[in-house]
């Protein structure tokens, strides 16, 4: 099912087509958007993009994991993970073209 892989270059191209900026500046703007989102998440902020989804960071406590190869027990240290919750608009969009 998985088709091609879209990258920064494709997003830059889309911005270039949409607004009359240079390709270079279009790519820089894509980068800036990702940077601003990353910085907010690192600061512990929630990033809410309406009709797309919400990114939140969540604190995970320490737990005992296991090396699946050796069976050895190793502590998994407390860490912060990102959670993305897609909005209903995005979920509906993804299923609109498919017949179940």
């Amino acid at each position: 099912m998985a088709g091609r892989t879209i990258t920064r270059a494709d997003l830059g191209e889309a911005v270039y087509q949409e607004v009359g900026l240079s390709r270079n500046e279009s790519s820089e703007l894509v980068e800036m958007v990702l940077d601003e989102m990353s910085d907010a998440l690192v600061r512990g902020e929630l990033v809410k993009i309406s009709s797309f989804g919400t990114f939140t960071s969540r604190e995970k406590g320490e737990r005992i994991g296991r090396n699946p190869k050796t069976g050895e027990e190793v502590p998994i240290l407390p860490r912060r993970v990102l959670v993305f919750r897609a909005s209903h608009v995005l979920k509906n969009r993804i299923n609109s073209g498919r017949r179940a």
Partner: peptide, 30 residues
């Protein structure tokens, strides 16, 4: 328009069943 285009493009890719890989940030898939 620029910001909306970026998220819209990611949405369209997912709609087509494509993957979106943004190195250093993350990857969207279905």
């Amino acid at each position: 328009r620029i910001v909306n285009t970026i998220f819209d493009e990611i949405g369209s890719a997912l709609e087509r069943g494509d993957r979106v890989e943004l190195r250093g940030f993350g990857a969207f898939s279905t």
